[in-house]
């Protein structure tokens, strides 16, 4: 076999010879780092999600009309897989994001210093991993700071832990005595001293087309759709009429198993 050094030399020569080409060849090993930005675009089926309390904006698969007043979720522990199978794990400290429909800036998280490469697949957690959920308070900064989170209602102080996904809205199917409101607050990292419900869900999605081609001069934008309908529609459909309020209960497991399928990568921009 050829020595590694010989192969590298060949690669360098090869890439130099291609330097004038506009597009990097698959055989080059790009160097440097770039950024990847995301756009988490919350939709309802084929419509854009718009927050309102009209009760009849959207319809779930059970035929129930509803509207959404709040839609927030955590994305964390992002991993990116290159075409050669190697995986880049975003450093833990900068891999927690809270996406809130009411806050446009929150929907466009960015990760910095991603090694150049052609990324074909993304893996992330919906929620906050159990390790971070039990870590020292000094390690809970930014969107994990309980002070910040308690204000946004994404933390249970009485049952220490983060709310991973919060969907609230109104529906004629929700009881009148509850003001036709529905509440889904889904959390649970598995428990500290006793085993409790675990709603941590991790998903892997292909990055379509040529993937995300990170270069020092290319900062790809990954456009991800999150379909609110999938909160209701999945392995165990959620009927608002049956469960208009789900927080700390076993029904939450069905809901997280539904919404873990709500994400699709729509497209990736790789323009320099």
């Amino acid at each position: 076999m050829f020595s590694k050094k010989f192969i590298y030399t060949l690669l360098v020569l090869f890439s130099v010879s291609l330097a004038s080409c506009k597009k990097d060849s698959e055989n080059t090993t790009p160097s440097g780092t770039g950024n990847i930005s995301f756009e988490f675009d919350n939709v309802v089926g084929s419509s854009q999600l718009v927050l309102d309390s009209t009760m009849n904006t959207f319809t779930n698969s059970s035929g129930e009309k509803f509207s959404v007043t709040q839609f927030n979720y955590y994305i964390s522990n992002i991993k990116l897989k290159k075409s050669d199978g190697t995986i880049y794990t975003v450093p833990q400290g900068s891999s927690y994001f809270l996406i809130m429909e009411s806050n446009e800036e929150s929907q466009m998280p960015e990760i910095h210093g991603v090694p150049a490469g052609d990324y074909k697949e993304i893996t992330f957690t919906i929620g906050v991993d159990s390790l971070r959920s039990t870590m020292d308070i000094s390690k809970r900064t930014g969107v994990l700071d309980p002070a910040y989170i308690a204000g946004h209602g994404m933390y249970w102080s009485w049952n220490q832990g983060y709310i991973f996904l919060k969907a609230e809205g109104m529906s004629p199917a929700a009881p009148e005595m509850m003001g036709h409101e529905f509440y889904y607050h889904i959390g649970g990292f598995g428990g500290y001293s006793s085993q409790t419900i675990n709603n941590i869900r991790t998903i892997t999605l292909p990055l379509p087309g040529e993937g995300a081609t990170v270069r020092s001069n290319i900062n790809p934008e990954v456009h991800i759709l999150a379909d609110v309908l999938k909160v209701f529609d999945g392995p165990k459909p959620l009927k608002i009429a049956d469960n208009s309020m789900v927080m700390w209960s076993d029904v939450s497991l069905d809901i997280s198993n539904n919404y873990k399928n709500m994400f699709t990568v729509h497209h990736v921009h790789n323009e320099p």
Partner: peptide, 8 residues
């Protein structure tokens, strides 16, 4: 940007 940062 809504990201956490452990580095003070």
């Amino acid at each position: 940007m809504f990201t956490t940062n452990l580095d003070q």
